[in-house]
Design a protein around this nucleic acid. Structure first.
Lengths: 197, 197
DNA sequence: ACACACAATTGAGCACTGTTCAATAATTAT
DNA sequence: ATAATTATTGAACAGTGCTCAATTGTGTGT
């Protein structure tokens, strides 16, 4: 069968993850097929399992890549000088989800088969994103104590997530909401103002 | 095979939906099997398809029942005299989700196979819940205009949903949050206070 | 140069899924 | 009693995730 050294193990990983992301973006998690990913990459299903261990392993790798890209997306937007950094963060949250809704949804809809929590290395990627948010909230509340800042940052992340979720899931369409980003930002601003007082 | 008139069509529906809900609560949507529901009820898979038309039809019926129960749950709590009605609503949102997390999750994780929106009769059940929330927000803001009330009600629903989502999905565990209901209620109170001012 | 050990790759096979539909059985109408 | 109708069945189909014996490519030791 003869392609033992066509690709290194990490090249293989990239191949599968890239093709997997493409397929996920097209079909969503429900229609996602590891077999089809393997076929399209040109390797057998056996090789995919050799590399990722399981279906969960593949999806986890794909989701980690999506999270990393999300982080890059936010950092890039924050790097622009000036501007309202909180608004940039909120907008970046929505923008990324809107650009690849199915991949974004898969971030949340995928669960480990045994119900176990995600592995450490994956949680670290999530913690990195949380850190970005916390840093901006801290900057907006110079005189607040760290634990309060963290708590508020988590709550505001949940607030923005809820709005983004209803937006991507079309729940807001159903309820007649047309400006979810504005609404999310308004809630965030109110909470920060209240924390300042 | 001989049970043509054991159950009427609507009795059959109830049978399948009840057993389906039981199974959904145990296995979650990913492990849910229409075949197994049929087997447990004692009818063939063909009969299930005759009644619901498709897998989506069955899950939709199950989810509609879950939504109705959620509404009953909230109404029952609100019916108690006195008390903080906003806090009751927020608490009821979390409480129901925590009691049957897998059924609650299925409410959001199920999507029509063709990506189409949910049928009218299903949307009506959702609208009913939204109406309950809007009524309470309106009561909290006596002098506000109706369109503003509706807009705020949608936004606060999203806010609470985001907190509840992170709670049920264990994201908050991962981030160290231990009092998500308090956080959600605080955000809601701030927003209402800001709307009053 | 050759044989041997090792590691990567394969794909048929298993138990499961949702879905269809001809055949069959039970009921109702004539 | 016979015919028409309707409910019910389950085998068949194409697909899924997953396993593992067999095969093939590579590297090493002599």
């Amino acid at each position: 069968m003869g392609r033992r050294s066509d690709h290194t193990r990490s090249e293989l990983k990239t191949l599968f993850v890239d093709e997997g992301r493409r397929q996920l973006a097209r079909t969503g998690l429900a229609g996602f097929s590891a077999r089809d990913v393997a076929k399209r990459v040109g390797y057998s299903i056996g090789t995919l399992y050799n590399v990722f261990g399981s279906y969960d392993g593949l999806v986890l790798a794909i989701n980690a890549r999506t999270l990393a890209l999300w982080g890059d997306h936010l950092r890039q937007r924050l790097a622009a000088p000036g501007g309202d950094r909180i608004a940039t963060l909120v907008d970046g949250y929505f923008d990324f989800a809107a650009r690849e809704p199915r991949a974004w949804i898969a971030l949340y809809e995928h669960h480990m088969a045994d119900g176990a929590p995600a592995p450490e290395w994956y949680q670290a990627v999530v913690a990195d994103l949380m850190g970005m948010v916390a840093a901006e909230i801290a900057a907006a509340l110079p005189s607040a104590e760290p634990s309060g800042v963290l708590s508020l940052a988590r709550s505001l992340l949940a607030t923005v997530h809820g709005h983004c979720f209803f937006s991507v899931y079309r729940t807001f369409d159903m309820l007649g909401e047309t400006a979810p980003i504005d609404a999310a930002l308004a809630r965030v601003r109110e909470a920060i103002a209240a924390a300042r007082a």
